[in-house]
Design a protein around this nucleic acid. Structure first.
Lengths: 229, 229
DNA sequence: CTAGGCATCCCGTGTTTGCGTGATACCCAA
DNA sequence: TTGGGTATCACGCAAACACGGGATGCCTAG
């Protein structure tokens, strides 16, 4: 992805924009679906070629060989959920950008959608123009999100980096821990750190005491769980 | 994209907006700093009360008791880096929103900033209006990001969800792996699973072969890295 | 100046491991 | 029916381990 350093315009310019952007809409609510479809169809350069009331139909169409540029996908769908659908859509057509549409912005759904490969996450309460804009944004390599969703994503991230329960593990002990996690035996660790076997042994004992374990495996497990390195 | 700028009223209405929003600017480039400060000062409802050329001075001011609503913080700073600064700012004043400003949008910096507690991440090449807007967006609980940064964040997330490299580890072997990660020795694992010591030993050998390791510590490390349970 | 944390080093002992080399039994697909 | 994958069990031994004792030097905070 070295095109990354360039601007959005550079990215779109490498795509064949001869044809209008093809957008699919998967949404079980008839009114919303037809409204959105009409709006999208009316936008210059955008073609809402197909719309579906469930994920299964959309996937069938995809397997039939059709390849949309962007899919606007409802999260709450009868039958196969939108979240299941994302990963399958991406599996079939990796280049297709999927933007989730939903009424709820709960953390769990956002998280799972993103892990499944969604490129964006908007609320249905977003202004229609925002949704239209998101099509272009997704295609340009961006990630259309509502501010609240963006915040959720950031929060989830921040939560991944723990309060860092130090356990009072020192620098040297950390190194030992790291090499231990690579499967090295005491002797090898000693060589790597230019230490005596006995020193490594002592560090190991101290680590065990601090982490409340008494085996190498336990120490490594704890180190991973507490992200000690 | 004018949502946040114009809807600023709606957002501030839920906050006690008696005083204008106080913004601090931490940026070593004099020209950029003074320009931004002037622009911010000219915005209705915003007060750029202080600006600093390094993180240390800003932290001193913060420790002195001043509490800004938003800090616009350069990532590349002489002395203490912006990333180090974020976590310290958040530690001193958790309510303060920190928006990172940078010329580079590399993954590593974004990731670390966010983990440190940043609420947003903009490029200095962003239009000035976007930066001003970000102040309100951050304060309203949003997460101002450039589309590309947003994409980076999503990509990092997606990467967290395993490619699921099975390694062909069987159910039984997984159980052994799990108990091993708890620091149990073979005999204990055997008891837990109601197996013979020798059976556990065999499972262990097979695990080692499949994961290409030859110590318990290595196996546990690999299991964690590959999210085998 | 003295206590405490850290890092370094050493010995000995009993326990646990890793691995070579077996075996039996089940199931399922070729 | 022959084979491959999984699960089970077994013996023996050298190597690695955990942990009981020590020890010295360095630096920092009380």
């Amino acid at each position: 992805m070295e095109t990354a350093t360039k601007s959005g315009k550079a990215i779109t310019s490498i795509l064949p924009a001869r044809h209008p952007v093809t957008v699919w809409l998967v949404e079980d609510n008839h009114i919303f679906r037809h409204t959105m479809a009409r709006v999208l169809g009316g936008v210059e350069g955008v073609e809402c070629s197909q719309h579906f009331s469930n994920a299964e139909d959309a996937l069938d169409a995809l397997l039939g060989g059709a390849v949309p540029d962007v899919v606007l996908l409802d999260v709450e769908l009868p039958g196969k959920s939108g979240i299941e659908a994302v990963s399958q859509i991406k599996a079939i057509s990796p280049a297709t950008r999927v933007v989730m549409l939903t009424v709820f912005d709960d953390h769990e759904k956002i998280f799972r959608s993103i892990c499944a490969g969604a490129s964006g996450y908007l609320l249905k309460t977003s202004p229609v123009e925002r949704i239209v804009e998101s099509v272009h944004e997704a295609l340009a390599g961006g990630a259309p999100m509502t501010p609240r969703v963006a915040k959720s994503v950031l929060d989830m991230f921040a939560r991944l980096s723990r309060p860092k329960h130090d356990y009072g593990v020192t620098r040297q002990e950390q190194k030992v821990l790291e090499l231990m996690a690579q499967g090295l035996i005491k002797k090898e660790i000693a060589d790597r750190l230019a230490l005596s076997y006995h020193t490594v042994d002592t560090h190991l004992r101290n680590i065990y005491a601090k982490l409340h374990v008494n085996t190498r495996a336990g120490a490594v497990a704890k180190a991973f769980q507490e992200r000690l390195f």
